[in-house]
């Protein structure tokens, strides 16, 4: 599904190398988790994959189902099936949540040569998905993320994911700022989307999210590289001992 090879990335503004050769393959139907200390490059990886400005790829490649991602515009990556759940979802005053969702869905469909969804079908689709995430009609009517609590913003990200049905989902610290109940709700939303055709890359600091979203593979990232890969037990090890041991192993 997602294949990242020897990815080197530096900041455009300053000559600072952030990713120093990332290799990672996420298969369809699998959930991969990336853990790592602050500043290891986890979020940069998600931004580079989704096409945010400010980063320069100096070496390596990233493909989604064999198609090059790095040359594509962010909207093309989205239409190809990539989705990033933001660590800090953006507030957009003046744009209604429903308008935003419908515009996004129809833009993706159009890019793929599919018919636009009718207003009625769209409403039905959103209501159904919103219900399981406990997003009420009032939240759907409000401008995108404006006045939403931290938990509401993250639920809104998962709602977008559920409506857009991407092939490859990247969750960037989706657990940050969530209380236990919200984390459960968000995780349930993600788990409902687990499917053999869909890949997940879950970026997190803490093991607790992985109690809810059970990963198949866990990677430890440090200093711009993946330094260790293992099963779910690796996350537990980090939880118990911190990153020090693993970092020492790598050194």
């Amino acid at each position: 599904m997602l294949e990242i090879k020897n990815l080197h990335v530096k900041l455009e503004e300053e000559d600072k190398q952030i990713l120093k050769g990332v290799n990672l393959t996420v298969e369809a139907g699998k959930v991969h988790a990336i853990m790592g200390p602050n500043g290891s490059g986890k979020s940069t990886l998600s931004y580079v994959l989704s096409g945010r400005d400010g980063y320069e790829v100096t070496e390596g490649s990233a493909t989604l189902e064999g198609e090059d991602l790095l040359e594509a515009e962010p909207e093309e990556r989205a239409a190809a099936g990539l989705f990033l759940a933001f660590q800090y979802p953006v507030e957009i005053p003046g744009v209604g949540n429903m308008t935003f969702l419908r515009t996004a869905l129809n833009a993706q469909r159009k890019a793929r040569g599919e018919e636009e969804i009718s207003a009625t079908d769209f409403l039905k689709l959103v209501r159904e998905k919103a219900k399981t995430l406990k997003i009420d009609a009032e939240m759907l009517k409000r401008p995108v993320n404006v006045g939403f609590s931290g938990g509401e913003k993250k639920r809104n990200e998962i709602l977008q994911m559920a409506v857009l049905e991407p092939k490859m989902c990247i969750l960037d610290e989706t657990d940050s700022g969530l209380d236990v109940d919200a984390m459960k709700l968000v995780s349930d939303g993600v788990n409902a989307l687990r499917d053999e055709g869909r890949g997940f890359l879950v970026i997190t600091h803490y093991q607790r999210l992985l109690d809810h979203i059970k990963p198949d593979v866990v990677h430890i990232m440090a200093n711009g590289r993946i330094i260790k890969t293992g099963g779910p037990e690796l996350a537990l090890e980090v939880e118990k001992n911190g990153y020090a041991d693993i970092l020492a192993e790598d050194a």
Binding site: S50, G51, R52, D53, E73, P74, E75, R77, A78, A79, F83, L84, F86, P89, V90, I92, F100, T103, A104, L105, A107, Q108, A111, Q160, L164
Partner: peptide
């Protein structure tokens, strides 16, 4: 960027 990342 947020809008574009959703395909718009």
């Amino acid at each position: 960027f947020y809008l574009r990342s959703r395909g718009v």
